[in-house]
Simulated assay, not measured.
Amino acid sequence: MPRYALRIEYNGAPFCGWQRQRDQPSVQGSVEEALARLEPGPHRIAAAGRTDAGVHALAQVAHCDLTKAWTPFRLSEALNYHLKPAPVAVVDCARVSEDWHARFSAIERRYLFRLLMRRAPATLERGMVWQVPRDLDVAAMRAGAAHLVGHHDFTTFRSSICQANSPVKTLDDLRIDHHAGQSGPELRFRLRARSFLHNQVRSIVGTLERVGAGAWAPDDVRAALAARERAACGPVSPPQGLYLAGVGYPDDPFARDWAN
C-alpha cells in the first residue's frame, strides 16, 4: 500500500488535542474522516507527536496508508477540501517508503512558545499566545534557561501522568528571543530535542516566566531541576502559546519535488 507523509498545520483551540477520543473533536479524527471521504476506511494515521488540547501546530507530521496511488499534490488538495471548515490544513505531502514512520523515524522535535507582554486584553492574538500584563527580565530568563540545556533528569518538568519510560532527556537548544510583535512586545521560546516529556515545554516556560517576573532567581531553576520532584516546578503555562514547530528526519521526505 502506498504510504504518504503529511505536514499538517492546525489551530488547536477547538480540539481535545491531536489524539482521537470518543465523542470529542480531535485533529487526528478530522484528518482520518477526510481520508475516509477519499477511500473507504477505517483509517488510522500516526503522528510525530501528540499535542494536548489547545496546542497548535505549524508543522505536525503524520503518515497514512492508502490503496490508490495519489500524486502528493492531488492528495493534499483533496484532503484540504474535505477538511473544511476545520482549522486544519495539509501544507505539504510526500510519498515515502512503507517502513517510514512519522514518529519512529523522527530524530528531533522543535517547539515554539509565544508569550505576549501587555496589559490590554489580546484581541487579534487571543487564543494564540500566553499573555502576561508585565515586562519580563529576558536576561534573567536566559540565565535560568541555561541550566536546562543538555542531558538531564527532567522529573521536575514533566506531568505526573507522563507515560514516558524515563524522565532523562537531552534538551539540545532553548532560545528566548524578544520580538516587537504586531500586538505588542513578545517573547518567543524555541526548544529542540529528539523527544519531549508530557508537559515539559509548558513546565519550563511557566517556570522561566517566574524568573522573568522576579519571583525566582535564575539559580532557582538549577535547584528545581536537581530536586527531581514535580512539586519543585513552577506553574505550568497555558496551552494556547505552544506550537509544534517542526519535526526532523534523517532524510527529509518533503525536500523533494512537491508535485511528484
Score class of each variant (00 low, 15 high):
Ala122Val: 04
Leu38His: 11
Cys233Leu: 04
Asp177Ala: 15
His63Gly: 08
Ala78Ser: 15
Asp257Arg: 12
Leu242Ile: 07
Leu35Phe: 06
Val88Cys: 09
Ala180Met: 15
Gln60Ser: 14
Ala215Cys: 02
Ser97Pro: 03
Thr155Tyr: 12
Trp216Met: 09
Leu79Ala: 02
Glu125Pro: 02
Arg3Asp: 13
Arg222Ala: 14
Ala255Ile: 07
Ala139Cys: 06
Ala13Cys: 05
Ala193Pro: 08
Tyr4Ser: 11
Asp137Gly: 11
Val129Asn: 01
Thr123Leu: 08
Ala48Trp: 14
Lys68Leu: 10
Gly41Leu: 13
Phe254His: 05
Val27His: 07
Phe113Tyr: 15
Gly241Gln: 09
Gly214Arg: 05
Thr156Asn: 02
Thr207Ser: 12
His56Gly: 06
Ala231Trp: 00
His43Glu: 13
Asp252Met: 02
His82Ile: 09
Ser105Glu: 03
Thr155His: 01
Ala86Glu: 10
Phe15Met: 02
Arg3Asn: 12
Ser105Val: 13
Gly54Ile: 14
Pro87Ala: 01
Ala120Val: 09
Leu208Lys: 00
Glu229Trp: 07
Val55Asn: 05
Cys93Met: 10
Ala227Lys: 04
Val132His: 02
Val211Cys: 01
His152Val: 10
Glu33Thr: 12
Arg114Val: 10
Arg114Cys: 04
Ser237Pro: 00
Ser166Val: 09
Thr67Gln: 15
Glu98Asn: 13
Arg190Gln: 13
Leu116His: 05
Ala146Gln: 01
Ser237Gln: 07
Ala62Glu: 15
Glu209Ala: 02
Ala180Ser: 15
Asn165Trp: 05
Ala224Trp: 10
Arg37Asp: 14
Leu112Gly: 04
Pro72Met: 11
Trp70Ala: 09
Arg20Gly: 03
